[in-house]
């Protein structure tokens, strides 16, 4: 089974966001970058599919030079091949086009992504790649079974779950719960440092969106904090009813 997995690099979830000088992106000074948490589930699923069915796992990243680090992590986790495409674009269509171009060349049976990258929270790349490749897609997958050339997946919906079936090749985006990702072992991390990363030129796709600005959300005024006496609780209920008008 030929498996392609898209992984992106994002700021650590605890990062304090400071807006950069051009007000169009965050200030990257002091920010710790990690593999997008949802992509850990995608990568783990790719490795398990290979362990079960044989084949190869290729990891691909589109990003700036520092994004190569996530490919080192993927190599430490024993992916067979790592592909890096240098691009600073934040436009999802540009990223999806680059990923689709890699898929057109390697003809994977399964393409795995994370549910969303936690920087821009776009939730676009997986269905876009599927559309570009004329393939089925299942997003937010919390359970996946592949039998021969068909798949059954469970995905989260409002107030429940749905079961979806499709045939391969297909695009899957991973939700938490799909699996428990493994950690790389120290010797493998060392070995991964000298493994090759293939570089590809970016496609000449034009962006379809443009960032105009980024700002911090308006700071909240200091809240009204009470003690726990009967009077305090009555006052809170009164304010929720009469001031905030939410109950």
């Amino acid at each position: 089974m030929n498996i392609l997995v898209g992984i992106s690099q994002v700021p650590d979830t605890t990062t304090k966001i400071v807006i950069g000088a051009d007000s169009k992106a965050i200030d990257s000074k002091g920010v710790k970058y990690i593999m997008n948490p949802y992509d850990e589930f995608a990568l783990e699923e790719a490795l398990r599919l290979k362990e079960k069915n044989g084949g190869t796992v290729t990891a691909v990243t589109v990003g700036g030079d520092t994004a190569k680090e996530v490919l080192r992590t993927a190599l430490a986790l024993q992916v067979d091949k790592a592909i890096f495409i240098k691009s600073d674009s934040a436009d999802s269509f540009v990223i999806a086009s680059n990923l689709a171009a890699v898929a057109q060349e390697s003809k994977p049976d399964v393409i795995l992504f994370g549910r969303q990258s936690i920087d821009y929270d776009s939730f676009q790349v997986a269905p876009m790649v599927a559309e570009l490749l004329d393939m089925p897609s299942v997003t937010m997958t919390s359970k996946l079974e592949i039998n021969g050339t068909s798949l059954t997946a469970e995905r989260d919906i409002e107030g429940g779950k749905e079961t979806v079936s499709a045939s391969l090749p297909a695009v899957i985006s991973a939700q938490k719960g799909l699996n428990e990702p493994r950690y790389p072992k120290l010797p493998d991390i060392m070995k991964a440092k000298s493994k090759p990363i293939e570089e590809r030129a970016t496609t000449s796709t034009a962006a379809r969106t443009e960032i105009v600005g980024m700002e911090l959300p308006a700071a909240k005024g200091k809240g009204k904090i009470f003690g726990d006496s009967d009077g305090d609780i009555s006052e809170l209920v009164k304010l929720l009813h009469e001031e905030a008008k939410v109950i």
Partner: peptide
């Protein structure tokens, strides 16, 4: 739209 899990707001133009 909210980005960085709501820690920032992005203004984006569709071109």
């Amino acid at each position: 739209r909210p980005v960085y899990a709501g820690k920032a707001r992005l203004k984006v133009k569709i071109t």
